[in-house]
Amino acid sequence: MAIQKVRAALGGVLFGQEDVVDTLLAAATSGGHVLLEGLPGLGKTLLARGFAAASGLSYRRIQFTPDLLPADVTGTEVWQDGRFAFRPGPLFAQVVLADEINRATPKTQSALLEAMEEGAVTAYGVRHELPQPFLVLATQNPIELEGTYPLPEAQVDRFMAKIEIVAPKRAVWTRILSETPQMPEAAAGPEDFLELRRRADAVRVASTGMEAVVNLAQLASEEPRLRFGISPRGAKAWLALARGFAVLAGRAHVEWDDLRAAARPALVHRLFLTEEARFEGVGELQVLEDLLAKALPR
């Protein structure tokens, strides 16, 4: 299957990060955008480039800086042959790397919202469809670093998954230092990913699985440590990502392990703690684990 070939190819790009690769592929399979977070030098940009090369999809990179304008992302009108014509920006690609997205101002960050939600850009009153499949891979450094702007909550919610990339394990360091990652050859193409998305949409979810998602959403809305619960978009993202994991495993139905694997990347960035919870040292992951223990069977 094409997705397994892409998976194998990415194993030679980002060493020792199999869980990161699987989550990225599950999101791409189910049609979601991905936010990659980690300190500089851990391979976020390398992973995005490697995925674009292995997937056979068109690729553009946008380096986000404080002086970047929305038109630099979406495109602008230029005078050409005696009339104004729209010149598409770098957003018009199938895989768009929004590198260091949290170094641009919120106004520029928000230029991605329509594209991520609807797969189109409206410029000067005219709607322009983006090439399909369309996937935004955004990287960001932790917000405590100087010169960064936290993403607006509405935009964070547009990312199906947030993947935290951490330092590799000790056993992988020697390989990282001795081998040079090579950009893979294309192992798939646009039609392969469109077919994977159709396959993910057809993955079955048992009534017990649906009830577990509803239970967790209800529990989150009643959780005193959260400012508000998980939105319907968040619950759908969790279910869609679980379907992606099922496709990656070659199954036509979602299992409990798929829901567990999808929970952290799909939900942690959608949990907003109260000030009291933060003061007490509570973390989003701790709250999520408590909710999962109540909502899912052991």
Rank of each mutant, 00 (worst) to 15 (best):
M116K: 00
L24G: 03
V78Q: 07
N215P: 11
E223K: 05
K169E: 15
I3K: 11
V78F: 03
D157T: 00
G16D: 02
E153V: 10
R270A: 05
D157G: 07
E289Q: 14
L25F: 04
A293P: 08
E191Y: 06
K107T: 13
R83A: 15
P106M: 06
A115L: 06
L288K: 03
P133Y: 00
R225S: 14
L14Y: 01
Q80N: 14
K44V: 08
L69Y: 14
R227P: 04
L57C: 08
A217D: 08
G229Y: 03
A261S: 14
T208H: 13
P88V: 06
Q155S: 09
L239H: 07
A295R: 00
L296C: 00
F159D: 04
Q4E: 15
A186R: 09
Q4Y: 11
R170I: 15
A154F: 03
A85D: 11
T23G: 09
E179A: 13
P152H: 05
R233H: 04
L285C: 11
V213H: 09
P88L: 10
A104C: 08
Q17P: 04
L145G: 14
P181D: 02
V20H: 06
E144F: 10
M116P: 03
L47V: 10
P90I: 01
I176Y: 03
E100V: 01
A123E: 12
L24Y: 05
A277S: 03
D257F: 06
P265W: 01
E276K: 13
F15A: 10
K162V: 14
L10P: 11
A237K: 03
K294M: 09
P106L: 02
A249K: 10
A277N: 00
A263H: 04
G41C: 00
G75K: 05
T180M: 12
H128Q: 04
T174Y: 12
E222Q: 15
A71K: 11
V78T: 10
V214I: 11
M116S: 00
V136L: 11
D72F: 08
F193N: 07
L130S: 04
T274P: 03
